[in-house]
């Protein structure tokens, strides 16, 4: 990149005080008090130094540092509530600062070189944009994951008996999360039984039914037992029509029946109290 920008631009950049000063001024106007001029000066001062090193000195390591610094600024601006275009515009303002200096000198070669410089700054500005959207995507992905965890609680029903009340549409990803969370909870709590209640699940597809089946089989390999309760008529129909073999898996009509089964199997006897 350094070779593409001419010597005249480098000369202009050497007048750090004037160009940086104007850049800071332009950006400070744009941010309207959300960050102080001092902060802007520190940020841009760092960028300016790196731009100079890359363009004038052809310093390769400066290019990498510059990109890292831009990403950092883009991220912190995003956190401060700036829109991605505002961040990009503050980078683009460097063009105006440089252009004004050429305007003052009025040279033709400098204008030609300015085109290359302009393209270079555009590239830097666009990079802040990309960082911004990548940061946002990460936030969305994290939230989706948190939602998934919230939607799949594993609760203790009794000593040694866990319950997983599933509500809403089950997709493959969510079923997989349930499966892994449940199995880990069985280990962590030393529970012998798990009741997967699907009363609140309107429908299942082949993949989800398979995942449920696999959960039960994996639980069995770990020496525990899963009971599935609350299979709605439509789901029962799906399972049969799809020809999925539920084999000897214990299924119960309701969560209460499943709990009673697990209690009996773990040797707990329920006796009516004297007052009843």
């Amino acid at each position: 990149m350094s070779g593409a920008v001419g010597t005249r631009i480098s000369e202009i950049l050497e007048d750090r005080e004037a160009v940086l000063g104007r850049w800071v001024e332009l950006v400070t106007e744009g941010v309207r008090g959300r960050i102080t001029e001092r902060e802007v000066r520190t940020e841009l001062g760092e960028l300016y130094g790196l731009v100079q090193r890359e363009l004038a000195d052809g310093d390769e390591s400066a290019a990498g540092e510059l990109r890292a610094a831009l990403q950092e600024i883009s991220r912190s601006r995003a956190r401060q509530g700036f829109s991605p275009s505002e961040t990009a515009v503050s980078v683009f303002a460097l063009k105006q600062a440089v252009h004004e200096r050429i305007g003052a000198a009025g040279e033709e070669t400098a204008y030609a070189q300015f085109i290359a410089f302009s393209g270079y700054v555009d590239e830097l500005g666009l990079m802040t944009f990309e960082t911004y959207s990548a940061t946002r995507e990460q936030v969305i992905a994290d939230q989706a994951e948190q939602l998934l965890e919230l939607a799949t609680p594993v609760v203790k029903l009794w000593d040694g008996i866990l319950g997983v009340p599933l509500v809403g549409t089950l997709d493959s990803a969510r079923t997989q999360v349930v499966m892994e969370t449940l199995l880990q909870m069985l280990v962590d709590t030393g529970s012998q039984f798990a009741v997967i209640d699907i009363t609140g699940v309107p429908a299942v597809d082949t993949e989800v039914a398979q995942h449920l089946l696999k959960t039960v089989m994996a639980a069995r390999l770990m020496g525990t037992e899963c009971v599935i309760s609350g299979i709605r008529p439509q789901i029962a129909q799906t399972i049969v029509t799809l020809g999925i073999e539920f084999g000897d898996i214990v299924t119960k009509a309701s969560l209460a029946d499943a709990l009673a089964y697990a209690l009996a199997a773990s040797g707990v006897r329920l006796v009516e109290g004297a007052g009843a």
């Binding site: 892994e180 199995l183 280990v187 696999k214 089989m217 994996a218 390999l221 770990m222 020496g223 525990t224």
Partner: peptide, 29 residues
């Protein structure tokens, strides 16, 4: 005894049911 969840899930996916092998959660059980 003591099969980890990730191992159990993988065995199921692999198609291995360990027929005839009894399992328990931990040593005590």
């Amino acid at each position: 005894v003591g099969m980890r969840p990730a191992v159990a899930i993988t065995l199921v996916e692999l198609g291995l049911s360990l027929g005839g092998v009894r399992t328990a959660l931990d040593l005590e059980k």
